[in-house]
């Protein structure tokens, strides 16, 4: 099946000459959740804005459900819902009317049942006759999601949906995204909370200075790029690292009761077998062994700093 979103060599150069997107290539499958990770100014929002029609690309192509975003922009945009990074809502408008407006704007006939359903789903039904300015920040964000879904899009862009949102609401948002995925909506989200990408995304695309550095399955990325730390707990404390274990990337805890060995899971030889043999030879008695995997955040920081070099 063809990807629902295909981006080919998409470029955006602003008037001043700043190259915000430097030839983006990206395929997104129907029903998947892709997290777009990158530092501030990496081009995440520009990419989303370009795909949604807010910004015109300088060159390159992109299709949504097979419709070109430029030559067939009407049908392409019908497929897309966008939740912007900032809370952009008219303060004096009414909550329910806001959702109806969005649906109409996308050329869909009024559907009270659908809009009421969205309002209930995002716990806004009781507030449907309230003005937007009377809502809390979290509620406003939910209104934005409701608006983005009001025309039943196939692809939903969430530009940092949980920025500045409290923990409970963030969890609600994650649940909502998971539910949308179940319904078959394709979701592309940008986020600064990397745990969010780790918890929700099927794939992660890392973007930096307008270039996609890599696109990986979240689990594969963890496996392929992740650094692991092997912790050896000792029965007797050591005063220092014994000479028999010299030359290895080892760290002794201040209390002398554990040794940490950091290794790269991508390396052909992790050195674990050799380490264990030398530990045994040195006559060190083990109490326990555990490994911890590096988080996506650590991977991300590594990648971005590598790219910067």
């Amino acid at each position: 099946m063809a990807p629902i979103l295909q981006v080919k060599d998409l470029r955006k150069t602003y008037e001043g000459g700043f190259e915000a997107l430097k030839g983006i290539n990206l395929d997104i499958e129907e029903g998947e959740i892709l997290a777009l990770l990158g530092p501030n100014g990496a081009g995440k929002t520009t990419l989303i804005s370009t795909l949604c029609g807010i910004t015109q690309p300088t060159s390159g192509t992109a299709t949504v459900a097979g419709f070109d975003i430029r030559t067939d922009y009407r049908r392409a945009r019908e497929q897309i819902g966008l939740v912007p990074q900032e809370i952009h809502l008219e303060p004096f408008s009414y909550v329910g009317a806001n959702l109806h407006f969005s649906r109409g704007l996308f050329g869909k006939p009024r559907n009270d049942a659908l809009v009421d359903g969205l309002l209930k789903r995002f716990s806004l039904y009781d507030k449907r006759r309230n003005r937007v300015r009377e809502l809390s920040g979290g509620m406003k964000r939910r209104v934005l999601i409701g608006k983005a879904l009001a025309h039943e899009p196939k692809v939903l862009f969430l530009d940092e949906p949980t920025a500045g949102v409290d923990v409970a609401l963030r969890k609600d948002m994650w649940d909502a995204v998971a539910e949308l995925k179940k319904e078959g909506v394709t979701i592309i989200l940008t986020t600064h909370y990397i745990e969010e990408a780790e918890a929700m995304a099927d794939r992660v695309a890392v973007i930096r200075k307008g270039e996609i550095l890599m696109v990986e399955q979240t689990s594969e990325l963890m496996q392929r790029l992740g650094r692991k730390v092997l912790t050896i707990e000792l029965r007797e404390p050591l005063a220092g690292i014994p000479p028999a274990l010299g030359g290895l990337d080892l760290e002794l805890a201040p209390d002398g009761l554990s040794l940490s060995y950091s290794y790269d899971t991508r390396a052909e030889r992790t050195g674990i077998a050799g380490l264990m043999a030398r530990v045994q030879e040195a006559g060190i008695v083990l109490k326990d062994i555990s490994t911890t995997e590096s988080t996506l955040e650590e991977i991300f920081v590594d990648l971005v700093s590598e790219g910067a070099q």
Partner: peptide
């Protein structure tokens, strides 16, 4: 809508 930022919706709509 330009001032409040809501104009993004019009720009991203199939119009």
């Amino acid at each position: 809508p330009k001032f409040t930022g809501t104009f993004f919706e019009v720009l991203s709509a199939p119009v």
